[in-house]
Design a protein around this nucleic acid. Structure first.
Lengths: 255, 255
DNA sequence: TATTATGTTCTACATTATCGTACGTCGTTA
DNA sequence: TAACGACGTACGATAATGTAGAACATAATA
């Protein structure tokens, strides 16, 4: 193996799968062009992925798409957390009527693992599998506020701050200040930082080492998410995330 | 490339991912033993999957688990059908109060893509990402009944019939007879074939070629799923699956 | 009908993946 | 506390494989 310690053909096959994030179906020649590979090289990799059902061939169009085995493997990721968490998402939606999400930390992002959407016509629609920045989401900030300071500092160092609205916190010191505040309150808030009209409250989920790694957030339009509503939500939200934490092996509750 | 036309290192890396279907975390040596590979071979493959985030290392235990990028890719599979279908699953649960599933055909099985569970304490719990036999599930039979006869015959030929209960249909001719019946009715039923006490109604979803490829099923305990209830369910179930079919590009409704 | 594009096959050989050896770290045991 | 065993990881020689060029079959397009 070469210096960069990556097996080339395995890398290439994963890059092929990633091509399908932006395309529903792709042909062999399309993939070879996107990847900069010879057609027969691409074909060999694609055929191997097809044998393993990570790709499937559409018999009608002759093109390939992501296969069911990838779906099945995907459902195994963080299945413990998702199975434990989903009933609580449903409870929170029925209590408060706004969209509820389960997110995990992924370096400088959070990834949405589950959602239960509000039944309001005007609701916040999130995308499971989607990724959003950790520094301007309530879920992200509630996690950052509850990991060891050295780790939080290292993550913040790697953040490429971008301003989404006039309210986006783009200053490290202001972010750290906010995280202190959120840690004390036990929950984080995000008010029109990511998108105007969007408001969110979140509380962290701890692993058995007592470190936050996930969060539950509740999102609604600013017009419905008043300060009083935030406070009311936070009480049971924290209670639920602590219960989930316990079920994930966390021993001591935050008081 | 060799005769069997599979690229060995890509195959091996996919087999590594499949090891995690039965294990939440695995170490390098464990994987090398399961796979029958040298430790350093296994390590090279694992490290490559880690770079691409299909595997993640648990820093505390030193073991590996399936990574978030696999989850994200998984959410892309059949996302069109799942996005279109989910609101209908929610409607059916609120109308009938029993667990509703969205399944797709996968050779001689059906795979569960989405579910919305009943709020009854005694409910049918299915597993998203799980696979069940096509011949003794309502969803499976409703799909088999609505594909070209030659294809259905070929699939049935490959079925390895197993008896789960005294009610399981294990005879090809009886199955074909039932499929005829289901096609005429527009929906399929499964009454305690897979498991005693389990009852199910399902209707097919068609693609733009007019071929069934997916289905929605409603499952409940036999005590609640009376014959009258089946009939009541089928009316709106068929209406919904036809609407989903239309949104998936199917042009003509079954009459 | 001719041309172009695509998917697929075959095979020589250049390149890589494999694996044997070795090392550092950590946990266990005496 | 020291020794031992297990594990994860690094390195490099070489056997084995994956790549890509050429060719072919098929389908789409002008």
């Amino acid at each position: 193996m070469q210096n960069d310690k990556v097996i080339q053909s395995v890398s290439r096959s994963v890059e092929i799968l990633k091509c399908f994030q932006d395309h529903e179906e792709l042909g062999v020649t399309e993939i070879s062009k996107i990847m900069g590979l010879h057609k027969s090289t691409a074909f060999g990799l694609i055929a191997t992925l097809e044998v393993h059902r990570l790709l499937e061939k559409n018999q009608e169009t002759g093109k390939y798409k992501l296969g069911l085995e990838l779906f099945r493997l995907g459902t195994r990721v963080n299945s413990g957390l998702r199975n434990v968490g989903t009933p609580y998402l449903e409870k929170l939606v029925s209590l408060y009527g706004e969209t509820v999400n389960l997110v995990v930390m992924d370096d400088t992002s959070v990834i949405y693992l589950e959602k239960v959407e509000s039944s309001h016509s005007m609701r916040i629609c999130t995308m499971v599998g989607g990724r959003l920045p950790i520094y301007c989401t309530a879920g992200g900030k509630s996690i950052l506020a509850n990991i060891p300071k050295a780790e939080a500092d290292a993550v913040i160092e790697r953040i490429d701050f971008k301003r989404f609205t006039d309210n986006t916190i783009c200053d490290k010191d202001r972010l750290l200040q906010y995280l202190d505040h959120a840690k004390k309150k036990g929950y984080a808030e995000e008010s029109e930082e990511l998108e105007l009209g969007l408001n969110c409250v979140a509380a962290p989920i701890f692993n058995h080492f007592g470190k936050a790694f996930a969060a539950i957030s509740i999102s609604g339009p600013t017009s419905r998410m008043t300060e009083d509503f935030h406070k009311r939500i936070s009480v049971s939200l924290i209670g639920f995330t602590q219960e989930i934490s316990r079920q994930m092996g966390y021993v001591k509750t935050l008081i």
